[in-house]
Simulated assay, not measured.
Amino acid sequence: MTDTQTAQELLTPQEVAMLFGVDPKTVTRWARAGRLNAIRTLGGHRRYLGSEVRALITPSIPTQASSRD
Rank of each mutant, 00 (worst) to 15 (best):
V16W: 02
A33D: 13
A31C: 01
N37L: 07
S51L: 04
R29I: 08
E52L: 09
L19A: 05
T6S: 15
E52N: 11
R46L: 11
L42T: 13
F20M: 07
D3N: 10
L10D: 06
M18R: 15
R40I: 12
A33L: 11
S60E: 09
T28E: 05
T41S: 13
Q5L: 11
M18P: 02
P13I: 03
Q5V: 04
R46H: 13
P24S: 00
S67N: 15
E9N: 12
Q8K: 07
V16F: 03
A33G: 00
H45C: 10
P24G: 08
T2G: 14
S51D: 09
S60D: 08
L11M: 07
P13H: 06
Q64Y: 12
S51Q: 10
A33H: 08
T41V: 08
R68L: 15
T4Q: 10
V27P: 05
M1N: 06
T6R: 14
P13N: 04
D3S: 05
A7C: 08
R29K: 13
V22W: 01
W30R: 00
T58C: 07
M18H: 14
R35V: 08
T6N: 14
T28N: 02
T63Y: 15
A65I: 14
T28Y: 00
V27E: 02
V53D: 05
G34N: 07
W30L: 05
A17M: 08
P62K: 08
T63G: 14
R46C: 07
T12W: 02
L56F: 11
G21S: 13
A7N: 02
F20P: 01
A55M: 10
I61Y: 12
P24L: 03
A55K: 04
M18W: 13
T12Q: 00
A38V: 04
R29V: 09
I57T: 02
T4G: 03
T2C: 14
A55C: 03
T6A: 14
Q64S: 12
Q64L: 13
I39R: 06
P62Q: 00
P13S: 09
F20W: 06
R35I: 09
G21R: 12
Y48E: 06
A38W: 01
P24E: 03
V16Q: 01
L49I: 09
H45S: 10
S67Y: 15
D69F: 15
L36H: 05
F20A: 04
T41G: 02
M1L: 06
G50N: 01
E9A: 12
S60T: 12
T26R: 01
V27M: 00
A31H: 05
R32M: 06
L11K: 05
P62T: 03
V27Y: 02
V53F: 06
E9Y: 10
G43P: 05
D3G: 01
D23C: 01
S60P: 00
Q14S: 11
G21W: 12
G21K: 12
T6Y: 12
N37F: 07
L49N: 04
T12F: 00
R68I: 14
Q8M: 11
A55D: 09
V53C: 01
R46M: 11
M1A: 09
L49Y: 02
L11I: 01
T4C: 04
S67W: 15
H45Y: 12
